[in-house]
């Protein structure tokens, strides 16, 4: 019984130590673990603007515009507080839509707009049939007109 308790104590202590170490390491690497930065972070200068990085947020409603060349797409990524204009030429994922999430990878140009080399769609964790989605949208619309 004595030896058993000793082993148990050792294991628990070992696990606590490891857990603590892991927590410290994770905390230290926190900045590198984020997949993208928000437009607010970019505005605050917290994003690594010197090199290629990713910006994530919602594609602002009504902001998607095809340029005259027919290839380049311009849109605005927003986190509702700040927003960044983005230009991109290339294939867009199916779920890339206005009002939905997107993550763009690229560089900040001198004029402050973001030149994307890759666009990913970030969808949410809600799954429902189209009729239910329609009902949700209508309820959303109703509450918005009520509050105005």
């Amino acid at each position: 019984m004595k030896a058993r308790q000793k082993r148990l104590t050792l294991i628990v202590a070992g696990l606590l130590l490891l857990g603590g170490a892991a927590a410290l390491i994770l905390n230290a690497f926190q900045d590198n673990l984020v997949f993208f930065h928000t437009p607010t972070e970019v505005a605050e200068g917290k994003a690594p603007t010197g090199r290629t990085f990713r910006v994530g947020g919602l594609v602002e409603a009504g902001s998607i515009k095809r340029a005259a060349d027919g290839i380049t797409v311009n849109f605005v990524v927003t986190d509702t507080a700040k927003s960044i204009p983005v230009s991109y030429s290339g294939p867009l994922p199916d779920l890339f839509r206005e009002g939905k999430g997107a993550v763009v990878q690229g560089k900040l140009a001198a004029d402050g707009h973001f030149e994307a080399s890759e666009v990913l769609a970030k969808h949410d964790e809600n799954y429902m049939p189209p009729e239910a989605q329609h009902a949700v949208d209508q309820a959303h619309e109703a509450s918005r007109t009520m509050s105005q």
Partner: peptide
């Protein structure tokens, strides 16, 4: 939850109602 990820959050968890249609 801890970091910005491309992967979406959990649809089913102990802390909130599932964000899925019942049959799904």
């Amino acid at each position: 939850k801890w970091w910005n990820t491309l992967h979406q959050g959990a649809s089913v968890s102990l802390t909130k109602a599932p964000s899925m249609a019942t049959t799904m």
